[in-house]
Design a protein around this nucleic acid. Structure first.
Length: 898
RNA sequence: GGGCGCGUAGCUCAGUUGGCUAGAGCACCUCGUUUACACCGAGGGGGUCGCCCGUUCGAGUCGGGCCGUGCCCACCA
């Protein structure tokens, strides 16, 4: 220990870069993060991490969520629970495939050139190469995940779980294949789900186009997509619309094409919108598709999967891009004089979240999943509270979405992902759905080929909490850690992921996958914009860790977090860094002082609360309250207050006051130095037993504080623990401090708090009077309730105290006891009478006094007014009225004393 | 069009069930080589709590309206 203390003495500040890596290593080597699968999920505590994209890197959202989950996990682990933080990554179909394709392009190749098998091999290779970055980054953050059991959504076992679910849902009739209108993303050349579509406001031109009717007359149709006219197969009006009642049943002629279109009546058409006449394009508009199904209209597809016009669009337009086709169609219509009007039109346009390209609704043969049947129990789970969403204003959003849930397009035209376990007969087209490929067609014995499509990534993610634990096998892991306790995430994937996990969990395990969903803040850039690489607004958490330390980043993020979105605050991270440094130095100070006390043996000293002075009882009492408060805040997901409350305790009580109060008692020279001028309890005096008690108390305080802070700032606290606890045990595996009721001491709290207030007031006065910081002011304390604290007040406020005139025990006649006061400072319980001091500017002090008087007077007036109001006195609760009366008396006393 | 938020010191944010002489961190100003920490310490200035009505003895806190702002959901050509 001795050498370690020597080494500690030279470290005047906490250096995260030096300390963090070895600590992270000790944690990993300890096995603490890798629990044995024992006990029941009920008694254990588990969290399944939202799996980051396998080739991604840590962004602020990960860092925040990682900090949050780690606080919970560490807190629970220290509370004695068997904890497991399930770790893993997501294969992230589109994102990963896009990355590899980009790399291929750079080397002049393409996935088509490679072929499917080779391409998939290349992606695996890519994953080997880049797939560990983010996990390593989680380690740097200090996240105590179970790194020994890292999962991947394309692992063999995981794949088996996916197949099992797919086959079961198919057999249960929930999964089906359909030619349906989908959101086609020309960028990724794949269908995407509704949730991956984002609407953007845009200004287009709304054209009014004249369609002639057979047998005379015409209709005028408005559209922002004239190019889709080529695929019109009907014209519709509202059945209630008398204006057009006689048109229904007639035939319109499609301009440019000449196709005959029935005029139909459908409720969908709004009478008051535009002309009340609508062109119907079943193949390229979701609404029209529905109309088409209702009226059994033809489907003509003029836009292909490549985003270009097809042959069906006719020779003039085939091969054109959609944009070019629009121009060409408009030009052609203009030539025929069919454009009756055109005006700018603002509307929302669908874009792909994935590729950023404009969505092209078109009809495609895809796999879908019917959701209504699965949604029912998932709705009930949230309604009944089996799954609790925190904060609960997201509850309604979840329920609204679930109650209006629509089929989910689950097939993707990609190569990277779970290929559908669907096999078509090459001969008779018979469809087989099975986890294992059939040798031959069961109907005709012909050869079979597997479906080319893969599943939407979210399909596999939906199984995350149980597929990671070995399901469908009934593993010990599943028994011990499923259901998990809480799912922590930002709200943007509430539908995409959370809702689907609840549905799948209930369906396949019969249990909710987690008891609580905690929705955390989204961290925005400091200017309020979204943090994003493309905008250049991103802040890299790893950079921040390198600059300020992982503890600082964690503390900062926790302190920022809230129930709403917040801007990134570099100051909060600084604050965290300051806290780490402060704790480090406080511990360093205490240990080095104790070591020099001489008669205290640090190596054998047992940390224990052994108060011998009121400040001891005060800080011990305060510590108990902070313990209770911190635990309560962590358990209620109130991380910012947990972090900031701890900061306040460490700074505002432990360091600023307690350590200052106790310094004289820690002086190595029992005769005392120049500290503590007034009073009988000179520095360093006291029996050896008292010094030992103080040392024991200090050790106890520091150990408890450091342990209390550990879930939030694990590195610095673990480092300090190695000095405070020499058995070599890890703090990460030690017990979380619990409040000891017998140490709560309201009286001591009141006594010390009034002393603190007095010191602050006197310092303020000193400053206003220009008293030099180093010089003593001669004064007389004429106030009640200070007792043993009087001398501490004197020392901390730099006073040379003269005996009070009224003090019975004072040696009579004390010189100066009758000395007239030059000034008075109002403090709790009375006043301080200033008798003299070097270079005091009494005029300035007088100004301050006047200001205080004015403030007191106005406040007294306010309170008097309140108490004179009969309504207040009669109606307000008695305690409040009494409080005001007390306040008035106190203020009057202060004013009189001035 | 619906839903959910937000608007409190220069900045970022706290303010539980209405009782506040409205707080914190940062920034700013003054002072300080008091041997834990200058990533420090002490002190200080700074707010019509977006606006207007209302409820109440009392409103930053509750209700209504307005203005500003952000996000989510939604099939009006």
């Amino acid at each position: 220990m001795a050498e370690r203390l020597e080494e500690l003495e030279s470290r005047t500040r906490f250096d995260p870069a030096e300390v963090e890596p070895p600590i992270a290593e000790r944690w990993l080597a300890s096995g603490l993060f890798h629990p044995q699968p024992e006990g029941s999920a009920q008694e254990n505590y588990s969290i399944a991490i939202p799996p980051p994209n396998v080739t991604g890197s840590l962004h602020m959202g990960h860092a925040l969520n990682g900090s949050i989950q780690d606080v919970l996990i560490r807190y629970q682990r220290m509370s004695g629970r068997r904890t497991k933080w399930i770790l893993g990554t997501d294969h992230a179909g589109i994102a990963t495939q896009a990355q590899v394709e980009k790399a291929l392009r750079a080397e002049g190749s393409s996935r088509q050139q490679l072929g499917r098998e080779e391409f998939v091999r290349r992606v695996w290779e890519w994953r080997e190469h880049y797939g560990h970055t983010i996990v390593e980054q989680f380690k740097r953050l200090g996240a105590s995940c179970d790194y020994e059991e890292e999962r991947f959504t394309l692992d063999e076992d995981y794949h088996r779980a996916v197949l099992e679910v797919f086959v079961a849902l198919y057999e249960q009739g929930c999964i089906y294949r359909d030619r349906y209108i989908v959101n086609w993303d020309p960028g990724t050349r794949s269908a995407i789900s509704d949730l991956e579509v984002e609407e953007r406001e845009e200004t287009d031109t709304l054209y009014s186009i004249r369609y002639d009717l057979e047998g005379g007359g015409s209709m005028t149709i408005a559209t922002v997509r004239p190019e889709t006219l080529l695929a019109d197969t009907a014209v519709a009006v509202n059945p209630q619309d008398e204006r057009y009642a006689d048109l229904v049943g007639r035939t319109a002629v499609l301009p440019l094409v000449g196709r005959h279109l029935p005029v139909i009546a459908d409720e969908y058409v709004k009478r008051d919108f535009g002309t009340g006449q609508l062109k119907v394009t079943p193949a390229h508009d979701p609404n029209d598709f529905e109309i088409g199904r209702r009226h059994e209209l033809d489907q003509v597809s003029v836009i292909g999967e490549d985003g270009r016009m097809t042959a069906e669009a006719g020779e003039r337009f085939a091969g054109l891009t959609v944009a070019a086709a629009r121009e060409a169609v408009v030009a052609a219509l203009q030539q025929e004089g069919r454009i009756v009007a055109s005006e700018p039109y603002r509307h929302s346009v669908p874009y792909s979240h994935r590729s950023g390209q404009r969505i092209e609704p078109l009809i495609s043969l895809q796999w879908f999943m019917r959701m209504d049947e699965l949604a029912g129990p998932a709705i009930e789970a949230v309604r009944s509270g089996a799954v609790r969403i925190v904060p609960d204003n997201h509850r309604r959003v979840y329920l609204d979405w679930m109650e209006n849930i629509r089929p989910w397009c689950i097939s993707r035209q990609l190569w990277w992902g779970h290929r559908l376990p669907v096999y078509y007969c090459e001969v008779c087209e018979h469809t087989h759905v099975a986890a294992r490929a059939p040798e031959r067609c069961t109907a005709c014995g012909g050869p079979v080929r597997q479906e080319e499509d893969v599943l939407d990534t979210w399909f596999s993610s939906a199984l995350w909490p149980f597929a990671t634990l070995g399901w469908p096998a009934q593993t010990a892991e599943l028994e011990a850690f499923y259901p998990t306790k809480v799912l922590s995430t930002a709200r943007d994937i509430l539908f995409l992921w959370v809702a689907r996990m609840i549905m799948m969990g209930l369906r396949f395990t019969g249990e909710v996958p987690f008891a609580e969903v905690y929705i955390h803040s989204v961290i925005q850039a400091p200017d309020g914009r979204r943090m994003s690489k493309s905008l250049g607004t991103g802040i890299d958490p790893v950079d921040e860790i390198e600059r300020h330390g992982a503890d600082a980043v964690r503390f900062g993020l926790l302190a920022m977090s809230s129930s709403q979105d917040v801007r990134y605050s570099a100051e909060k991270v600084q604050q965290g860094q300051a806290l780490a440094n402060k704790l480090f130095n406080a511990t360093r100070f205490a240990l080095l002082r104790i070591a020099t006390l001489g008669d205290v043996e640090l190596d054998t000293l047992q940390p224990a609360p052994r108060p011998t002075a009121v400040e001891d009882r005060w800080i011990l009492s305060r510590l108990q309250r902070v313990k209770a408060q911190t635990a309560e805040r962590i358990e209620s997901y109130d991380f910012s207050h947990a972090a900031l409350g701890l900061y306040d305790f460490v700074y505002g009580e432990l360091c600023d006051w307690y350590l200052e109060l106790v310094k004289p008692r820690l002086a190595s020279d029992p005769e005392g130095g120049d500290v503590g001028v007034g009073g009988g309890r000179a520095a360093g005096t006291g029996a050896a037993g008292e010094r030992e008690a103080l040392a024991a108390t200090l050790l106890y305080l520091l150990r408890e504080t450091v342990a209390l802070a550990h879930p939030m700032i694990p590195f610095v606290t673990e480092e300090l623990w190695s000095y405070l606890e020499d058995s070599g045990t890890l703090l990460a595996g030690s017990a979380y401090p619990r409040p000891a009721a017998e140490l709560i001491d309201a009286e001591a709290e009141a006594e010390v708090e009034r002393a603190i207030e007095a010191v602050t007031l006197i310092r303020g006065w000193r400053d206003s009077a220009g008293a030099r910081p180093g010089k003593f002011v001669v004064a007389r304390l004429e106030a009640d309730g200070y007792g043993a604290m009087a001398e501490a007040v004197a020392r901390l406020a730099r006073l040379e105290l003269r005996a009070s005139g009224g003090e019975p025990g004072a040696e009579e006649p004390v010189p100066g006891a009758e000395e007239p006061a030059l000034a008075t400072v109002v403090i709790p319980g009375g006043v301080l009478e200033v008798l003299g001091g070097e270079g005091l500017d009494l005029a300035a002090a007088e100004q301050r006094r006047a200001a205080v008087r004015t403030k007191l007077e106005s406040e007294i007036e306010r309170v008097q007014g309140k108490l004179a109001n009969s309504g207040f006195v009669e109606r307000a609760p008695a305690a409040v009225v009494a409080g005001e009366r007390e306040k008035l008396a106190r203020l009057r006393g202060e004013l009189a004393a001035l």
